[in-house]
Design a protein around this nucleic acid. Structure first.
Lengths: 103, 103
DNA sequence: TGAACGTATGAACAAATAATCATACGATCA
DNA sequence: TGATCGTATGATTATTTGTTCATACGTTCA
């Protein structure tokens, strides 16, 4: 089955639940702000916390959720964890969201 | 400012909150299932409730949220309210979500 | 007009969730 | 090794949110 064929068939019920789980991750302003910050450059936890003016703990909790959704990845550098966006779907999804809003 | 230029500039903080609000709407399995049902054809409230095996009230509440987000529209037909998808960003956003999941 | 139908909506309740606080863990360095 | 730094994480709490229940609203039709 080609990608296009797969795209056009019915979506199984179970996949709809997974989709909702994925979009739930985008549905929080802290996480969106984290994603957008990582749009611009890789950042470690403390830098993210400073940039978003939030506690290290709050950021760390949200990064865990973003990691579980495979939206961000991390690289250890000494004591630091450097986070980065993991794929381009993030950008496309956010761009489409923006286009909807701007209509 | 062209669309492309607009896309590439920094996203203002306020728009990030609006984005989170939009994705929050996608982040519920009932609403995703409603959207997908409307993918296939227009439906009135009772038909949606039957198809998703949920109460009329629950569906109606969720439809209100989808309406507020301008993701669905409705047309009155006698006693019925016939709902439909309002724009193609819905399809693109969901498709991108699916591609992310299927990786 | 009144009954029946389809839909919308407010209140109440239960479940999910984000931030905080305290603390633990791992790496670096004196 | 002990201290410090950066990060992760469990528990708690306050808030948000989805469903249910009851009911109101608008339309159709006898």
């Amino acid at each position: 089955m080609t990608k296009k064929e797969q795209k056009n068939r019915l979506i199984p019920e179970e996949e709809l639940y997974d989709l909702a789980e994925l979009f739930k991750v985008f549905g929080d302003s802290t996480r969106i702000r984290i994603l957008f910050a990582l749009f611009l450059k890789e950042l470690c936890v403390n830098d993210l916390a400073a940039e978003l003016n939030m506690t290290q703990s709050a950021i760390s909790h949200q990064l865990k959720i973003l990691r579980n959704a495979r939206l961000v990845g991390l690289r250890r550098e000494g004591k630091q964890s450097v986070y980065f966006l993991k794929d381009d779907h993030v950008r496309t999804i956010i761009d489409q969201g923006r286009e909807h809003i701007e209509e």
